[in-house]
């Protein structure tokens, strides 16, 4: 058991953007609030705190999740990546450049979440068509309505670096009419 069980606090260790961070937190603290309030990583945004908007999307052990519905305690021993880790050595990630080029944001509040979902999408080669991108990105709401530009940015990068995928078995076909 990795946690204390009487004080309402949790201790442990989580790797955030490649760096080991000690946890000693109120057990009620979510991963989102840990990042923002305790680690000062405010790039990850809180848009609903109920898993209904995607603004808080981060990668947990390489997979995109909504950090508002994960307890920080659940991340003990796990790997978290946030928007702050996308640029490497001062160079923007191709998606970040494409978002700027295509104006894939307006107010910019949903952008970190959109980027983290998009990065995972490309890693899984699930960007073979605009429709596939739209379905896969639908967990990231944008109230400014930058959607067409976001899709264009993702498709642009996918085409450029050959990570579009083939729309084959991995392509999303769900039961929606």
């Amino acid at each position: 058991m990795a946690t204390s069980s009487t004080t309402g606090r949790t201790t442990g260790e989580v790797r955030v953007n490649g760096e080991a961070r000690r946890l000693d937190l109120d057990s009620r603290v979510t991963l989102l609030d840990m990042l923002r309030d305790h680690l000062g990583l405010t790039g990850t945004k809180k848009g609903c705190d109920q898993g209904a908007c995607g603004a808080c999307t981060v990668h947990l052990d390489g997979r995109p999740v909504v950090s508002c519905l994960v307890l920080a305690a659940q991340c003990d021993g796990r790997e978290v990546r946030t928007v702050e880790s996308l640029a490497r050595d001062g160079r923007l990630h191709p998606l970040q450049e494409a978002f700027i080029r295509h104006d894939g944001f307006q107010c910019g509040f949903c952008t970190p979440g959109q980027l983290m979902s998009a990065a995972a999408l490309l890693a899984q080669r699930r960007a073979s068509s605009a429709d596939e991108v739209r379905e896969a990105m639908s967990g990231n709401l944008c109230r400014c309505g930058a959607y067409p530009n976001i899709v264009a940015a993702i498709r642009d990068v996918a085409e450029q670096n050959g990570t579009a995928g083939d729309g084959g078995p991995g392509a999303a076909r769900n039961g929606a009419a």
Partner: peptide, 18 residues
């Protein structure tokens, strides 16, 4: 296939990962 369709239609990618 209909189980897969229900899973994919059932939540966003983030929530399906969780």
């Amino acid at each position: 296939p209909f189980v897969r369709e229900a899973l994919l239609a059932g939540a966003s990618i983030q929530l399906r990962n969780m």
